[in-house]
């Protein structure tokens, strides 16, 4: 099929409605184009003109707003799954990096800084040690939930927002507990905030990773919000 102008125009309209990871979006659109060209070629073989064949293929494919909602939901869930997988890998890795760096460069905190840690501070340290596992568990459960929904015929539009919410809760818990630990440290011994260079670098890595996860979370919300708005518009 030489001229695919009608199909290309339809796909450009679909493309303009979709927001999501560029690679996933490109694959979805490439596959849609293949299907439309295949259908148009089949119609041409049945005797339609090239123009009518393309129009018939598009009509069978479905209205662009309806199909766009289905594609957007898939893009939203794909972005959410990427966020959750990133959290599962990054949160324990960054926590382990910081703890090992502190163990190597600081060792016993009271001895290193010459101050005694008050008992109330240990609650903050306890929470900080465990929140990363709680957040990882939230991400894992949400990821498994997405897989269960995909296996059991749950419409992707119904769960498009769930990974973003789970990711925000998981990341929010880590950030709140770490901020609380930071404030607690500043309250009882600000000197401890000026640790050795290796822990400073590990902290920098933690902040970069947290920033990246925050960006992924915001994108997940943005993509799922687009899907929800379009869904609401049709009700």
């Amino acid at each position: 099929m030489a001229d695919t102008g009608v199909i290309d125009s339809y796909l450009a309209d679909l493309d303009a409605r979709l927001r999501g990871m560029a690679s996933t979006k490109a694959e979805l659109l490439a596959e849609a184009r293949d299907g439309l060209v295949d259908a148009a070629e089949a119609h041409e073989e049945r005797g339609l003109t090239p123009l009518d064949a393309q129009r018939a293929a598009i009509e069978e494919f479905g209205p662009v707003d309806e199909i766009g909602r289905e594609y957007q939901a898939e893009l939203s869930v794909a972005q959410g799954a990427r966020l959750l997988r990133s959290m599962l890998l990054a949160l324990p890795a960054v926590h382990a990096l910081w703890e090992l760096t502190a163990l190597w460069s600081i060792g016993a905190w009271d001895q290193h800084f010459g101050t005694k840690t008050p008992p109330w501070y240990l609650s903050f340290a306890w929470a900080n040690d465990r929140v990363v596992w709680l957040s990882s568990a939230i991400a894992l459960v949400a990821l498994l939930g997405c897989r269960w929904a995909a296996r059991n015929g749950v419409d992707s539009r119904r769960i498009a927002r769930m990974p973003a919410v789970a990711g925000a809760v998981a990341l929010g818990a880590v950030l709140v507990v770490e901020l609380a630990l930071l404030v607690a440290t500043a309250v009882f011994d600000p000197h401890r905030l000026n640790g050795p260079l290796p822990t400073g670098l590990a902290t920098l890595v933690s902040l970069v990773v947290a920033g990246r996860l925050l960006v992924l979370t915001v994108r997940s919300f943005a993509y799922s919000a687009g899907s929800r708005d379009e869904r609401r518009a049709t009700i």
Binding site: G62, I67, E70, A78, A150
Partner: peptide, 18 residues
Amino acid sequence: LPTGTVYPALRRLERGGL
């Protein structure tokens, strides 16, 4: 049914490991 709905459905089935 609109043939365009088949492609996202296939993606969902792939996500589910089916």
